[in-house]
Simulated assay, not measured.
Amino acid sequence: MSDDYLVYGAAGSGSTPVEATLTLLGEPYRVIERTVWADAAAADEMEKVNPLRQVPALVLPSGELMTESAAILIQLADSHPGSGLSPAWDSPLRPRFLRWMTYIAAQIYALYWIRDDITRLAADKAHEAVLRERTAARISACWTMMELQAPPAGRFMLGDELSVLDLYLAVVSRWGPRRRGFYAAAPRLGEVARHVDAEPRLAAFWAERFPFSEAWEG
C-alpha cells in the first residue's frame, strides 16, 4: 500500500482527465508513461497491468486497480465529496451526471479504439478512408445529440462549478477530428470546453500534459 496514486497513461491520452482530477484534488500521484497506440513495447508492458492493453489504469492507495476512464473519474470525485467534482448521490443533478459520463465513454471515446489504428477493422487499404470518415461523422453526430439533450446549465455542464464531466468532455473533444469540428457540431459544449481550458488551477498542468500549441484546435 502507498499514499500515492499510480497512473498508467500518456500525455494527451485518456489518462489526462484522471491526472487533471488528481491535480485539482491535491492528491499525490505518479505517472508511468505508456503510449500504447504508437509503441508496441509500451502496449506489451501495459498488457501486464490491463489485458486490454489500454490506458488509463489507476492503482489506488489501497492497491486496488481501476480501468475505464469514466469509472475512475467518478470514483475519484465521489471519494472526495468536498471537492464538488461530482454531484452527491441524492442530488437532482446525479442522473444527468451519470448519463453523460457514460455517454461520452460509450458513444464517443470507444470509437478511438478504431481511429487509433484503423487497420483493426479495415479489411484492406480501400476501407481505411471510409472508416475514418464514418467514425468522424459519428463522433460529430454524438456531440450534436449531447448538445441538444444536455445544454450546459451554466459555465459548465452542471452549473457554474467544474466537475469531472467537464474535464472528460474537454479532453475527449480535443481528439480527432479535433476541436474545430467539435465547435461546429456543439457550439454550446464548446464554450464549456473553453472554460475548462482556461481553468487557472490547471494552467501548469495543461502546459505539461496537453499543451495548447499552435493550430492545436485542428
Rank of each mutant, 00 (worst) to 15 (best):
P56K: 03
P56W: 02
P56Q: 05
A57F: 04
A57K: 08
L58T: 08
L58G: 09
L60Y: 01
L60N: 01
L60Q: 07
L60A: 04
L60H: 07
P61C: 03
S62K: 01
S62G: 02
G63M: 08
G63C: 09
G63W: 10
G63F: 12
G63R: 08
G63L: 08
E64D: 14
L65E: 11
L65C: 04
M66T: 11
M66F: 14
T67L: 13
E68V: 15
E68I: 15
E68N: 13
E68K: 12
S69A: 14
A70D: 11
A70K: 05
A70F: 04
A71S: 14
A71R: 06
A71H: 02
I72K: 13
I72T: 14
I72Q: 15
L73M: 14
L73H: 08
I74H: 00
Q75G: 07
Q75A: 15
L76M: 05
L76F: 02
A77T: 03
A77D: 01
A77F: 00
D78N: 13
D78G: 06
S79D: 12
S79T: 14
H80D: 02
H80C: 02
H80G: 01
H80V: 00
P81K: 14
P81G: 11
P81E: 10
P81N: 13
G82W: 11
G82C: 07
G82Q: 14
S83E: 05
S83R: 08
S83Y: 04
G84N: 10
G84I: 06
L85P: 07
S86P: 00
S86N: 03
S86R: 00
P87N: 11
P87Y: 07
